[in-house]
Design a protein around this nucleic acid. Structure first.
Length: 261
DNA sequence: ATGCCTTCTGCAAGAAGA
């Protein structure tokens, strides 16, 4: 089964490109992040016409996640115990649309858009760490209940696991995405037996500004993490850099993995 | 060392991204 994850940076703006990527790469399941629309605005028909079922979570112009599958889509759910967030600590803390999961072709796929964190001193950063805790708890509980579960946690993690995953480690000193606390959250997933099957993918994101893509100044922040029962089935991994190079692209590239089931 | 881009909302410029 061919599973791709892609922060599309607006599903409506990117729609023709997304449908083209599905066809060009013969993708079975696509996990999307930053769809940037509510559920009524989501262009379901275009996916249906292309032969895919969709599961969608979105509330407004921010965040938003979805899964498109042509190999079945059942047991749709979101991340349990997902923390909420508001800039105003005294206000209600709404749970944002940053997770959606479904069983597709024998794999439970969860599409994740991990909070950015903004700055280390910002409360968004502690929100990010709490969100990652919830992901780890979900992963641990899921494989504890069923060690044979094929679970793929995929998406935009907003963490570069190693210094080799950013174009210039010096540039990021004092910033989010590279701190030990963020990286430890991924180590905790490893401790639960999960594997980053995309660890050798190369960069998946290049900032729109400063001509970063042309200079290959990117980051590896999109990943596919596989449960113990799934990791050995992971095969070829690729990043569609041509898609990132195209006019009108997202700032993230599709990250594609073949699983032999 | 952000706002050099890009998106959204909504009509101007601010929020957000990493």
């Amino acid at each position: 089964m061919r599973l791709a994850t892609w922060n599309v940076n607006s599903v409506r703006t990117r729609l023709p490109r997304i449908i083209d990527v599905l066809k060009r790469h013969d993708i079975d399941v696509l996990a999307m992040q930053e769809t940037k629309c509510n559920e009524d605005q989501f262009p379901r028909d275009a996916f249906t016409d292309a032969g895919y079922k969709v599961a969608v979570s979105g509330t407004n112009q921010w965040n938003g996640v979805a899964i498109a599958s042509r190999v079945g889509l059942t047991d749709v759910h979101t991340l349990p115990q997902q923390p909420g967030f508001s800039k105003d600590l005294t206000a209600e803390q709404p749970v944002e649309p940053r997770s959606i999961a479904a069983t597709c072709g024998g794999i439970t796929v969860m599409s994740l858009y991990v909070p950015n964190g903004r700055e280390i001193s910002n409360i968004h950063f502690t929100y990010k760490l709490r969100f990652l805790d919830a992901v780890c708890n979900y992963a641990a509980t899921a494989v504890d209940n069923d060690p044979e579960l094929r679970l793929a946690l995929v998406g935009d993690w907003n963490i570069a696991p190693h210094d080799t995953d950013v174009w210039d480690p010096q540039f990021f000193i004092g910033h989010t995405h590279v701190t030990p606390r963020e990286r430890n959250a991924l180590t905790a997933l490893e401790d639960e037996g999960f594997t980053d099957v995309t660890h050798d993918s190369g960069y998946t994101y290049w900032d729109y500004t400063a001509g970063r893509f042309g200079q290959n100044q990117g980051m590896r922040i999109d990943m596919q993490w596989a449960s113990p029962a799934l990791a050995d089935n992971a095969g070829a991994v690729s990043v569609d850099k041509d898609e990132r190079a195209a006019k009108g692209s997202s700032d993230h590239a599709p990250l594609i993995v073949d699983y032999e089931l």
